[in-house]
Design a protein around this nucleic acid. Structure first.
Lengths: 224, 224
DNA sequence: ATCCCTTTGTGAACCGATGCACAAAGTCGG
DNA sequence: CCGACTTTGTGCATCGGTTCACAAAGGGAT
């Protein structure tokens, strides 16, 4: 705000998106008993350029030792703290179709920092079922469940038509973080974060490049 | 390669990533009987800036009419063609756990241009099962299935440990496009395209921003 | 204690993407 | 047929992110 106080705790978005990658690589190293790691090695493990890695980490602070590298355990802790994974996040999954079910059972989901705290669906056929150890609750209970369980992150795995309404309702009870799997553009206030995952978009991007490789606009049907 | 031949059919990567978004919005409009659309309206529907949309479309050619806008049907066709969706892509899903199953049944997957042509798994328990109308084949048959069905895009929904080996094997039989859901960094030749979707990374990014909103490093527990 | 070797952290050039703002192009009413 | 209006397509300034390259910092050997 005030120019006299730079207050540069702002970490670039691109960096934030890579921190989980580093964290995963570091966890693997910690399990294998690695004590310290150089930016070069960690960069390879995470699949990025080492200069980029160092610049990313430098946004968190000076946690490396020149001539040695980074202490694995310590770096795991620092990144976890920065990402907010030292606390426990209650996640609700709305829409318990094939995808919602898969997400509820997805191991990597539950692992560090996150806990699936509620499953909600509109279909009376599945309400009351137990999935991944959780009772599926009715969509009418949405607001009550979110408040009762202290849910702060909502995963939308509903059909496209239902997504915006559910989105509006959870925002109305204070949720400000949404992970959207429904193939729609959600309209939300600026204060709400929405991340979207669209499986078919990823496939389409692959198809584009595949087409290019296969001869592109010239359609040169040839060995290479 | 040769600098003498610029060959500028190169569409920026950021543009390619947005084309599927435009396509989805356009399909919706076509269904609602909309004949033409302005860049402004389409931009709103796709959730982007209208100048960006126009610049993106300009990379495909001059398909708009000044003073009028874009013909919906025509633009759908042009974008589809550019993305390579006018042809039929055979997709194999390797790993038929919760996620693989969800993907096999996922409607938006099958829809336009893509066809799930094979399901493959290592677990004898599921091999032979019929999922989404397809017989699950054994991982030993991987190479044979890919060749027989003409699979050109492989979706990896295996456990993390198995992903790299499956990846190597499908590349060995000529696959150059992979959509990876396993939480590992795959190592592949430059000629192969890998796109990754990591559900837990998305959650971690949300957690980061959520933590910031909740008071950030100062932990100012306050209304605003 | 000193020197050499390794590795970090970062200044600076570079690159691609974004968004403004406007001229060119086309439509439509009179 | 003309003039007002709409909307595209794009030149240009800007911005965020990437990469290079190197000085500063620390460890370990002698």
């Amino acid at each position: 705000m005030s120019p006299s106080q730079p207050r540069d705790r702002g970490i670039p978005e691109a960096t934030v998106a890579r921190l989980p990658l580093y964290l995963r690589a570091l966890h693997g190293m910690a399990e294998r008993g690695v004590a310290t790691v150089s930016s070069e090695d960690l960069a390879v493990a995470a699949g990025v350029n080492s200069a980029k890695l160092r610049k990313d980490l430098s946004h968190l602070g000076s946690y490396g030792t020149r001539g040695v590298g980074y202490d694995v355990e310590y770096l795991v802790y620092q990144i976890s703290r920065e990402l907010g994974l030292t606390q426990d996040w209650a996640v609700a999954i709305v829409g318990v179709g094939n995808l919602g079910r898969a997400l509820a059972n997805y191991g990597g989901f539950v692992s560090r920092g996150f806990r699936v705290a509620a499953l909600v669906d509109a279909d009376p056929e599945v309400v009351g079922d137990t999935i991944a150890g959780l009772n599926v609750e009715h969509i009418d209970e949405l607001e009550a469940v979110i408040k009762r369980r202290g849910v702060s992150i909502v995963v939308l795995a509903t059909p496209a038509e239902a997504a915006q309404e559910v989105c509006d309702r959870v925002i109305a009870v204070g949720v400000t973080s949404i992970l959207n799997f429904a193939p729609v553009v959600l309209s939300v206030p600026d204060s709400v974060d929405v991340r979207k995952v669209d499986l078919s978009i990823e496939l389409q991007i692959l198809a584009f490049h595949e087409q290019r490789k296969a001869g592109g606009p010239l359609m040169a049907v040839d060995s290479q």
